[in-house]
Nucleic acid binder design. Structure first.
Length: 474
DNA sequence: GCATGATCATGC
DNA sequence: GCATGATCATGC
């Protein structure tokens, strides 16, 4: 006898399945394979190679390993949940430990491919997505950069997970938003940042892979329904590894209202209040003006005492405050995280950090405007994510040029103590440019050729931001 | 007057 | 110590 087949779990009972899975805790994938095979080095080696689990390109391989070696069933590739009789979907997924010791999901959690033709006829409650996404057995393993053989990753958490009701409401709104975009013939413009917790994540074998869609001749990238990385990070920290981090909720007991509409209406009920008036209303007192005062006031309006809201964390929503002058101009461009020169040159656009940031982040633009007496007043807010064409044409071209400039060797000319460079300028592109974003001249990163240069980031041009704003704020 | 380079300052 | 929101300052 070569393999062990003592299935001591009831495949129709979620708890029994979970209990069986909990035996995985503390094991590496290597251990799991070893436990599956009788102690016979030769056979073990053959099994290991036969499954080819070490091949990183074999996606889903680790999930398959758990299915075969721990649950002893052959993996199915159909749209039914893995444990059909129990309605449980098995997901083996990585997490990581950040520099500051906090935990993050390493990846979004792919649920099921989107079939653009059939999905438009599926109601959320009866959808393929929901049959797989409503009860998931999460098997979390720790991803470590230093470990090259992924069989050596260790499984540390196992838990059944169902999204709580407050999340289901938002997941359903997300689902409908995705369906509506497909119905509008815009499957090719789907973006993860369109939605909050459930995203339409890119899922192609190659970057050229395209699918037909029902209401347009344009070919669209293959995409899958996925719980977003930000949502899974929240799940990890709040349902899997309970810790002290709790966030305040915006939608405390408001039911059956679209989340974004609720936020916009709430904020706009304070339209035309000056910053001072808002401080009075919400009893915000300070000696020196905090730099994030205008964003703080938005949290107060939403009933949040601190400066993080549960829904924003889960949905990866970033608040950006925008100041309009009385002449309707925006003085400053919008900055983003800095990039490392040596890392940017190694990236592809499809998986670049700035590209991914824009693809995956939803923004809440909060607009303030100086009135004729130079008093700053709240005008309102809008949710925003970067439009498909702006990202893939304009931002891409600036990103590509930036990479090329670094590869070719950044040209630096010093005139009167100021360094002038040949990074893409705001005057060269309508959407974005590259500019310093450092504390001072000594706050630098290394260029590939060894020179140090002040940290830079991509900025969205102020005029471009202006063009994206709802005209009612002017 | 605005684009571009530079840096301040808070808060984690 | 660093990320990031915010804004200054110079010169074209």
């Amino acid at each position: 006898m070569v393999y062990k087949h003592d299935n001591d779990y009831d495949e129709s009972n979620p708890i029994s399945i979970e209990n069986h899975a909990k035996k995985l805790i503390g094991k590496t994938f290597y251990d799991v394979v070893k436990d599956y095979v009788e102690v016979d080095t030769q056979i073990f080696k053959e099994t290991e190679l036969a499954y080819n689990y070490e091949n990183k390109k074999r996606k889903g391989g680790l999930g398959q390993l758990i299915e075969e070696c721990h649950f002893h069933y052959a993996c199915n590739n159909d749209s039914k949940p893995d444990f059909d009789k129990a309605g449980v979907e098995l997901k083996v997924t990585p997490y990581k430990i950040n520099k500051n010791k906090s935990l993050s999901a390493k990846e979004r959690l792919i649920i099921t491919m989107i079939d653009y033709f059939s999905v438009i006829n599926e109601k959320f409650e009866e959808s393929h997505l929901w049959s797989k996404g409503n009860l998931i057995l999460l098997v979390y393993y720790l991803y470590e950069k230093e470990i090259s053989n992924r069989l050596n990753y260790r499984i540390n958490y196992v838990k059944l997970f169902s999204p709580p009701n407050k999340d289901i409401r938002i997941i359903k709104q997300d689902y409908e938003k995705i369906i509506n975009k497909i119905k509008a013939g815009k499957a090719h413009e789907l973006s993860e940042s369109d939605t909050l917790y459930l995203g339409a994540a890119p899922k192609a074998a190659t970057s050229k892979d395209r699918r037909r869609q029902p209401f347009s001749d344009e070919l669209a990238k293959p995409r899958a329904f996925a719980y977003k990385n930000s949502y899974m990070t929240y799940v990890l920290n709040n349902y899997i590894v309970p810790n002290v981090t709790t966030y305040e909720t915006i939608m405390k007991d408001v039911v059956d209202v679209n989340f974004e509409d609720y936020v916009v209406n709430k904020i706009e009920s304070f339209s035309n209040f000056s910053v001072d008036e808002l401080c009075k209303v919400f009893e915000v007192k300070y000696k020196r003006k905090p730099k994030n005062l205008e964003a703080m006031l938005i949290y107060r309006i939403l009933g949040i005492k601190g400066n993080q809201a549960e829904e924003f964390v889960k949905a990866n929503i970033v608040i950006k405050t925008i100041r309009l002058n009385s002449n309707n101009k925006i003085k400053e461009s919008m900055s983003f995280p800095t990039f490392k020169f040596k890392e940017l040159v190694k990236e592809d656009w499809e998986d670049s950090s700035f590209g991914n940031y824009l693809r995956e982040t939803r923004f809440l633009f909060v607009v303030y405007k100086f009135d004729e007496n130079q008093v700053l007043r709240l005008r309102g807010c809008q949710f925003w994510n970067v439009p498909y064409r702006d990202l893939n044409e304009e931002v891409y071209s600036v990103w590509k040029k930036t990479k090329q400039v670094i590869v070719d060797g950044l040209q630096i000319i010093n005139r009167n103590g100021r360094n002038y460079n040949n990074f893409p300028k705001a005057s060269e592109n309508p959407v974005c440019h590259v500019r310093p974003h450092a504390q001072n001249a000594n706050d630098t990163y290394e260029l590939p050729d060894g020179r140090q240069y002040p940290k830079q980031c991509f900025w969205l041009n102020s005029n471009y931001i202006l063009s994206q704003l709802n005209k009612k704020f002017l």
